[in-house]
Design a binder for these strands. Structure first.
Lengths: 186, 186
DNA sequence: GTCTATAGCTAGATAGAC
DNA sequence: GTCTATCTAGCTATAGAC
């Protein structure tokens, strides 16, 4: 057994970047291998089921990241709801490199990607909404209002990323997040 | 010269549907040909430059459609600004089949698509924003406010489509459009 | 203008040496 | 565990008959 050339974490982060940038169909195994710092055949050793398994691993990694980095901040009862929202939006801002990067869920959510990852993508969006809805309750909204506002945040983040990416103008993303903050200051 | 088997309009609409559903990389020429009702080689007769040219034709067709169907409604000075907004949102609702379909601009806007269609996609979003911004002026907003609200509409349409498509729940789209209407009723 | 047939290539995926 | 070399299938694109 040779020593691993690229550690799991570094490996998955390289793969993540390729999928996020190119989408599922757009990312070739050679590009994925290059992004990972390995040869194609070595990727198959790490992920015997190939491209699908790599995609699932990347989504799973993203899910873990949100679970460990974003969601806990939204639930940290030591600080006020407003502070939790602010810190959460800070993390989201950094996560998408201030609107210059796109979202992996969207990158993998065209037709063929949806057939493979549909459940995972839906589940992650559901979790995202539920966590923001819980935060909404702490803002004093009733359940219905909290859900509506949580969905609105996801919609605005995704929509502003679409527009910012397409127009190469990340100010669209930044000002949208600022506007979300303002909405919760009333 | 044989008679054309499929008229231009029908042809382009078949191609449009395939690109919208599968994305640029995800749509193969065989699938495009099937969607168009022609064989692959016949597609090359109509579009000598191949896939790129087909994509550009599809985008151009979409652009024409908006120019003829959505934008005039937003500018129809015979009816009130509020009525124009309502009718415009009705058209948008139908255009995306109540949130069950995705947007061609988004479908073609991943990495490889952006390299080919980046200018066209950006230009169409800019036109969209400008038309809604002009409508905003008629609502009595100043230029800055009108621009901000126009961008917000595009962001909400795109974002709610992303979420509705990914979660297979078009109510997200419908309620977002309803919310836009409400915002302009104050 | 449309078609069948096929070229030329690159995709995803494997075999087997080290 | 990683690599080079290779397989097969599918891709974009073209040639040429009708």
């Amino acid at each position: 057994m040779r020593p691993v050339k690229v550690q799991d974490r570094q490996l998955i982060e390289g793969l993540f970047k390729v999928f996020r940038e190119k989408g599922y169909e757009g990312a070739s195994l050679n590009e994925l291998a290059e992004g990972a710092g390995l040869k194609k055949a070595s990727l198959y050793h790490r992920f015997p089921d190939g491209k699908k398994e790599i995609g699932l691993a990347v989504l799973s990694h993203s899910s873990e990241w949100l679970k460990n980095n974003l969601y806990p901040v939204l639930e940290n009862k030591k600080i006020s709801a407003k502070e939790r929202l602010d810190k959460g939006l800070d993390i989201i801002t950094e996560m998408y490199d201030e609107g210059n990067e796109t979202c992996i869920l969207r990158a993998l959510s065209m037709e063929s990607g949806m057939q493979i990852f549909g459940e995972e993508i839906k589940a992650e969006m559901t979790r995202w909404i539920m966590h923001f809805a819980k935060l909404g309750l702490d803002f004093g909204f009733n359940e219905q209002e909290a859900m509506a506002r949580a969905k609105e945040i996801l919609i605005k983040v995704q929509g502003s990323l679409v527009v910012a990416n397409a127009m190469s103008d990340n100010s669209v993303f930044l000002s949208t997040l600022d506007e979300i903050r303002t909405l919760y200051n009333k």
